[in-house]
Every structure is written in C-alpha cells, then in structure tokens.
Design a binder for these strands. Structure first.
Lengths: 253, 253
DNA sequence: CATTTAGAGTTCACTAAATGGAATTGTTTT
DNA sequence: AAAACAATTCCATTTAGTGAACTCTAAATG
C-alpha cells in the first residue's frame, strides 16, 4: 500500500496478496465486509480483485458468499516447498541416520520462520514438524539461528512486530535476553533451543550463511536423548550439512 | 489476458499468477528472458511485477538472477490445504480405520485434480499421495468421480486440454471410453480406478455432490487386498463419509 | 587481461487499465 | 417488510503498461 511508493511495487498485486493474507489470518475464511474493514480498501476494489482471484482458482467463494483460499494456492505452495526442500531432503535424511533424531530446514518468511524441509526420526517418541508450518523466530532453534545472522535492527523489527510469546518457562521473554543469546549463538556458531518452544524438547540449530534467503537447519528430540553429549556429536555433523547446503543454495537458490 | 475482457479481471493480477505458473511449470526457476518468452509480456512489465513479488516474499531472486517461487507461497498453500483438509481428516481417518487402506480427498483445480486431504494406512505396502500433489482427471479414481458430476462439455474441455496419457495398459485412452465410463460411474454412484493410474493399485472413489468446488474422496491400495469383495465393504462406508463431508462443505466450504 | 556481448535492469513519454466515491440493484436474514 | 450485506454501475482521477532507447553487470571471447 504505502510500500508502492518506496519500492515501485504494483498496487493491485500488493493488494491482492494483502487480501489473501487477511483471509489466512482470519482462519481461512472472510466475508467481503470483513475484508473491507481489515484491508481498508474500498468495496468495489476488493470485489474486483476477489473476482479475479476466484476466476483464477486461488480463492473459492463459499455458499454463504464469504471467501476462502482456493486449491490453486496448494499447488503453488507445494511446488515452492518441493523446490526449496528437494535438495535438502537427502542431507537432512543423513543427519537423521547419523543422530537418530528428526532434522528440519526452515527459512525466514516475513516475520516468522517457515519449515521447508524435514526428515523424521524412526523413534516412536520424536519431534515432528510439518513442512509449511510457521513458527516464531525468537523461541525456536532455527529461528534464533537465523536471527543471529541478521543485523540487530532487523531482529528488533521482526521480534517486536510479532511480540515475544513464552510457550514455556524457559522461553526468552525479553529483547535483552534474546540479543544476549544471539550473541552467544554467533560466538559458538550454533543455536540451542533448550525447552524454549516445547517442554521436553531440545534442539540444536545452525544457519546456512550463504543462502540467499535466511535459512537454518536443526536436529531436535526429547531432552532425555538430546543432551549435551548428543550436542557434541551433533554440532560437527550439522556444520558439515550446513556447509554443504549453504554452498548449494549460494549457487542454485 | 484475453479473459480480462470477459470476466472483468484485473490485468496485473492475472499476469502475476501467470508468471508464478510459468515458474512452476519450468521446474520452479525461470530467468527473466524465459518469462518474457513464455508470458509474451514486455520486459519492463514483467520486471515490475516480479519486483513486487520479490518484495512481498512470494518470489525469491537467486544469485544467478533468475526467479524462483518464494517461501510466502508455502504459507498460503499450507493454510489453504489445512482449511480444505482439516474437516475431512477425521473422516478420512475413520475410513482408514474401517478398511485398512489409505484414503484421500481431492478437488478440481483448473484442468487437474489436486489432493487436499489424506489419511494413511498403517500397512507397510500402501498407497501414499502427498497433499498438494496434482494428477490428471481421466486416469484417477477421484478424477473420474469428479468428472462424472460435470456436464459433458466441461469434461471434454478439461480432458482435451490436458491430453489423455495412459500410464498403464488399463488406462482410458480415448474420449469415447472415458465418457462411457463416466456414464457407468453415474449409474453405480462411484468410480473405480482399476490399475489405470499405476499397475497393482486399485481405487474406489466417490464425489461429494454438494461441495462448492468439485471434490471427491477415495480409498486405494494394492489389488491383492483391494478386490471386488473389498469394494462391497468400501462403497457404503465411502457413501456415508461422502454424505457427511458433502453436507459440511455445502455449508462451510 | 582487456574487450565483446548477452542479458538484466531501468528510464521516459504516451496510451491503456485500474481505482474509488456515490449511488443502484440484488440477495439473504430477521 | 425491513434491515443488512453483497454485487454492480458510472466515470473522473490515479496508476499501470508499453515500445524504444539506454545503462549496468557478469561472463564468454580473443
């Protein structure tokens, strides 16, 4: 909206994705007036944009006339995640084979991290994060690993825009604590999520420095198995995998 | 493009999704000139649209300057599939529990079907279709079940635009055969994919008549287990599930 | 290693398309 | 039948698209 001035963006394109995001934020379904209120756009404009999206299959109109995300988006999202995660999959798999715990890859998308690749442990008690799922940056291993690669101003902007929910007692709840932890992450070269996201789950994570979009990988599991001894075994393997992926993404994406 | 005349669509919105689809079709990555050739749009226009998409996070620009689908699309697609599949999941799960074979839900998206919900069998030999995956309509159970609910003109348009590949010897290869099969499907009330998509896999499928977007569910597995006797047990359960889902989607989406 | 050169990225002035306020017409829900 | 919301129309104003020419950058060539 206001961005169009500074970035040379196309107004109707920015608006159309704004509308899709509003529908997403409303739990996947919005009425016209709801969209008008939240987007602060005039009604005829919204309707015209929605008509286009409906025609193209990216929005469905429900029988009660409200609008929902359409099947076309599934296809685009699936292709995007395939492309992002395809190269990473075997590398993540190798980590799982070496360490016996689930491995993930996540990227920064706006102000949150989105999981784009995953390999599961075969243990019956394991962590499981679906590809496509989003998470806060400040309370996840991958999120903190990513934040540690960004300039402080951007960290502040990202975290303050989303707030700092504390899902567990160990979660970082203040900007001060977070910035201090990020400094430690930069020093040691990897991030630790020690039951900050979920009680009983510990995670070691490392950023891919050369990736064009800020990206990180992690290995996570129950604290009973993922202890500090595990960390000592995990870190070199994570580093190896991160370097390999980083080199690839620097070239190809 | 030409649609804008007939539908009152917004040109730049149609074009932007055109570009995303071209990137998708090119395997997830396209150069500017590639996009120019395939979209037949002038260069400055494409560049402006892409700049907007990159700014919004729906396209990433790779170090070699070509463009790829961005992480923002994963989020939209994930939300879309969650919304579409969320209600269906427990119903599909019930089918799996009752019949021991994988169950799927798929919708028509343009000229193909896209899988939007899934529950897996726990057997080691089982069918597995990822949510988001697309398939031809004429050679899948869900596709045929959906086609059988559409007017013949639309069936012809969909199938002729995609062609009729025959992945197995049992696949339907001519419009005549397909239309005859659709007639049988309408008579008996469900579709059978008898090794038409993949050798050794049989599938029973049923459309959700009230769904706003043409939608179908199916149960599928190896022919050794999914035989005609299995079909007799499956059909009433499928019908029950289809009615339940259909009633829900008629109201909510 | 300097020089082509191909393609990306940009500029500009003009034409085409999109926008949005006010008012109008449908369509449900109450 | 009224109220509430959705859908649409009109058209002056704003924004986007385009063809031609230009700059910039990276990598292939000699």
């Amino acid at each position: 909206m206001t961005e169009s001035k500074t970035t040379g963006g196309v107004q109707s394109v920015e608006r159309v994705f704004d509308l899709l995001n509003i529908i997403t934020a409303s739990g996947g379904e919005s009425s016209l007036s709801e969209l008008a209120a939240k987007s602060e756009l005039p009604l005829p404009t919204i309707h015209r944009l929605l008509r286009t999206l409906v025609f193209l299959g990216y929005v469905r109109q429900l029988p009660n006339r409200s609008y929902a995300l359409g099947p076309g988006l599934i296809r685009l999202g699936y292709t995007a995640s395939l492309q992002l995660g395809a190269y990473a999959q075997p590398v993540l798999r190798r980590i799982v084979d070496q360490l016996g715990e689930s491995a993930n890859m996540a990227m920064l998308d706006g102000h949150m991290v989105v999981y784009v690749g995953q390999a599961q442990s075969s243990q019956s008690m394991r962590t499981f994060t679906e590809v496509g799922r989003r998470a806060h940056a400040h309370d996840t291993g991958v999120g903190k690993a990513i934040l540690a690669t960004l300039p402080e101003s951007q960290v502040v902007s990202i975290v303050s825009s989303m707030g700092m929910p504390t899902p567990t007692k160990k979660s970082l709840g203040t900007m001060e604590d977070l910035l201090a932890d990020l400094e430690k992450i930069r020093e040691r070269g990897y991030a630790i999520d020690d039951e900050e996201q979920e009680v009983g789950v510990r995670c070691f994570s490392m950023a891919l420095p050369e990736a064009p979009t800020p990206t990180a990988i992690s290995v996570s599991g129950p604290v009973s198995r993922v202890d500090w001894d595990f960390g000592e075994r995990a870190v070199p393997l994570l580093r190896e995998a991160a370097d390999e992926l980083s080199a690839h993404f620097a070239q190809v994406g």
